[in-house]
């Protein structure tokens, strides 16, 4: 049913990504699909990495760690302003790599989501492919 699953991850909250990683792995096993872990970083040093290259290595390590015998890959995206660009960057990446499913964690909707929707909601609203959102 699915051949290429994209999993956006926030390395500064790596532990909270567990549900998405688990679900994506299960689906990939069932469908014989491959997984690409995608992370967005900045050119400026961040709490995760001091350079985009360091971020790329950490993301690759994360992907490998959660390989689970599957074909996994990672892709680091550098953004000028992730606070506002994140969703667009993720959507572009999904389209570009030809993913047919996006699996990501999202928080419970609250009052603020009426003004700024969460990343998951935004992706689901705008993506061409299927999106699976997991409550963290």
């Amino acid at each position: 049913m699915f051949s290429h699953i994209m999993v956006p991850v926030d390395l500064s909250h790596a532990a909270a990504m567990a549900p998405a990683v688990k679900a994506a792995s299960d689906l990939a096993h069932a469908n014989d699909a491959r997984i690409t872990y995608v992370g967005v970083t900045t050119a400026e040093p961040s709490s995760v990495a001091r350079t985009p290259e360091e971020f790329g290595r950490k993301l690759a390590a994360f992907a490998e760690e959660h390989g689970d015998g599957l074909s996994v890959d990672s892709r680091a995206i550098t953004s000028h302003d992730p606070t506002s660009d994140l969703d667009r960057k993720l959507l572009d990446a999904a389209k570009e790599m030809g993913a047919d499913l996006v699996v990501m964690v999202t928080h419970h909707p609250n009052l603020a989501d009426r003004i700024w929707s969460g990343h998951g909601g935004d992706i689901a609203a705008h993506a061409d492919m299927s999106v699976l959102l997991l409550r963290s």
Partner: peptide, 11 residues
């Protein structure tokens, strides 16, 4: 939790 603790070595 964050994985800041892994931030060792500076490339």
């Amino acid at each position: 939790m964050t994985d800041e603790d892994e931030s060792v070595g500076v490339p």
